[in-house]
Structure formats: structure tokens, C-alpha cells
Design a binder for these strands. Structure first.
Lengths: 149, 149
DNA sequence: CTATATTAAATCGGGTACGATGTAAAAGAA
DNA sequence: TTCTTTTACATCGTACCCGATTTAATATAG
């Protein structure tokens, strides 16, 4: 009865499927991003900045749900590769503003296209993208809520 | 028209929601695993071994979709903490068999219970677990297929 | 039977990923 | 104003995570 709760097969574990999917996406995007020398998390940062440029590091950290300890070294690498620029905030001497470089604006289209190309190789039959996204968002909402406690 | 393909909002990206969900799960499980000094990926290894013990490293690598480069150091840490044991295979001198220790068998129930407790704190209203899992499996199938090419 | 190819592990380098800690600045309370 | 708390960022240690390379052993081909 209760026993099967402790004998859940690996294949029935939601956490495991999500884990694999995340690594799968990371590899898929990596292939598309190789020409630009970008990693998947770095691409997420650019994605956030293309939507809203010139923002505090804290803002990116919140939006991507990446800790400062992870994000800051990433931003330094992106700066070294001339994708972004760190500018001290004039209003708040603690804070740092992050903005895109010309290179990042110029390459946006090419990057998106390369990813689109890669995604096309993926047969999405049997996947309900809308419902899938909906379930994921609900789950992430819950993770957010728990985090706040 | 075509333009919106290049202006997809961060919030519409499946890859991003999966990315966040994976990190969320990792944190959730981490809390449950703290008393056992285990990480989430280490727990996955134990999960695989509880199901099928005394297997080649390669077998675990395939089942968890974790590269040897990642898995091998993990196994060494699990060995150091006395969760598993590495035994040279008698049939194939290249290969190494991995098997669970007494500790791993004894603690199985307690670990499962701790995780169950943690999961209970999660309000799953609005999440269709079955359908969610189904979509994830289809996606991972596709990632597998692409990998093989 | 020998030369070649494949396979299982191990190792390495670069890049996440997090929680804990430190530091300086800003915000709030007294 | 001054004391306290909070905030933004930076850094550190531990643990993934992968692709590439190396090494030894097995399997296959000629």
C-alpha cells in the first residue's frame, strides 16, 4: 500500500525527468551557441537584457532565479567577451548597472536564428507545448513561494 | 509576423522554465537530503542502484544520462562517504562494478521519508502530474534521439 | 593470428550552481 | 543625528556538468 511510495521507479520521478530535460536543453542550445562562444546560461542573460537593458545585477538575478554567487562570475566572463558592460550606478553606489554592447545588439538576430535552426531538428509530436509550459509555470510558482519562507 | 520568433519573451521560453524547475527541484531535494549529507545528483545514483544494484559505471551513466566525466568523481565521493563500493569486474578488466553498502540499504527508508516530507510542503494544485510527466518523457525521448546522431 | 577498431574508465579544463561570508552603502529607527 | 538593519555586490569552497583526451582491455577484421 504505502510501500510503493518508497519504491518509486526512477522513471516515475518527476524530478528526474525535469533534470534530464534541463541537461538536454542545455546541450541543444550549446550546439546552436558554439559559433558565438556562448553557453546556455549566458544566453539566458542576453535574453533577459534584450528584453530589458541597463538593469541592476540584482534585477537579472531575480528574473533568472540565479544567485549572485553564480551570476557575478558569469557577468564577468560576458564582459570579457564584450557582450555586456558593467557600469556603476550613479544613484546607488552599492549597485552596478549591466547593459548590452553593440556586439550583443548586432548578433541578436543571428543567435536567435541559429537556435531556431537547432530547435527545428526536434520532432515535437506528442508534446503539448502550451499545457507543458502551464504546468512548468505552476511548479516554478510553487518553488518561488517555498523559497520566500 | 516572423519577427516575434526573434522577440520571444523570457517567460515564453520552455527551456527557461525547465531550467528553473530543475534548479528548484535540486534545492527542494537538497533540503531533504542535508541530514544525510547527500546532493540531489548523488541521490539519483542511489535511486538507480536501489532499483538495480551491482552494475557497471557505464550502466549508471546511461540510465541517468550523466557523462562519465561527471559521474566518476561523484561515485568517488559516494565511495568516500560509504554509500557505495567500487568493485573491479572479474569478466571485463576494463569495467568497474558499483554496489550499495549496508549503510545505503539501511538509510533508504529514512531518505525516502525525508523527501516525502519535503514534497508535502509543495502545493501541487493546478499541476497535472501525469500529463506533465508524459510531456517530459516525450521531450527527453527526442533529446535522446538527437544525441544518437 | 595479428592489426585495427571499439569500449570502459579515468582525468582535465572551463563553466555553472549554491550557500556562507565579507564589505560598503543606503535605509530605517531612536 | 547616530545607531541598527537591510541591501547590493563580491568572493570562497564544494559539487556538479560536459566534451576532449588518455590508457588499458576487449572485440572485430583481414
Amino acid at each position: 500500500m504505502e510501500e510503493d511510495l518508497f519504491n518509486r521507479s526512477l522513471d516515475d520521478q518527476l524530478c528526474f525527468e525535469v533534470y534530464k530535460a534541463a541537461n538536454g536543453f542545455s546541450k541543444l542550445y550549446k550546439r546552436a551557441l558554439v559559433p558565438f562562444q556562448l553557453t546556455f546560461p549566458q544566453y539566458l542573460v542576453l535574453l533577459a537584457l534584450w528584453e530589458e537593458d541597463n538593469v541592476y545585477i540584482k534585477r537579472i538575478s531575480d528574473r533568472l532565479a540565479i544567485s549572485i554567487g553564480t551570476l557575478n562570475p558569469m557577468l564577468n566572463r560576458l564582459t570579457a567577451q564584450k557582450w555586456i558592460k558593467k557600469v556603476p550606478s550613479p544613484k546607488d553606489k552599492r549597485a552596478t548597472l549591466v547593459c548590452l554592447t553593440e556586439k550583443a545588439h548586432e548578433q541578436k538576430r543571428a543567435i536567435s536564428l541559429s537556435i531556431l535552426q537547432e530547435i527545428k531538428s526536434c520532432n515535437t509530436t506528442g508534446i503539448d507545448g502550451q499545457l507543458f509550459l502551464q504546468n512548468l509555470k505552476r511548479l516554478n510558482e510553487e518553488f518561488d513561494r517555498i523559497e520566500k519562507n
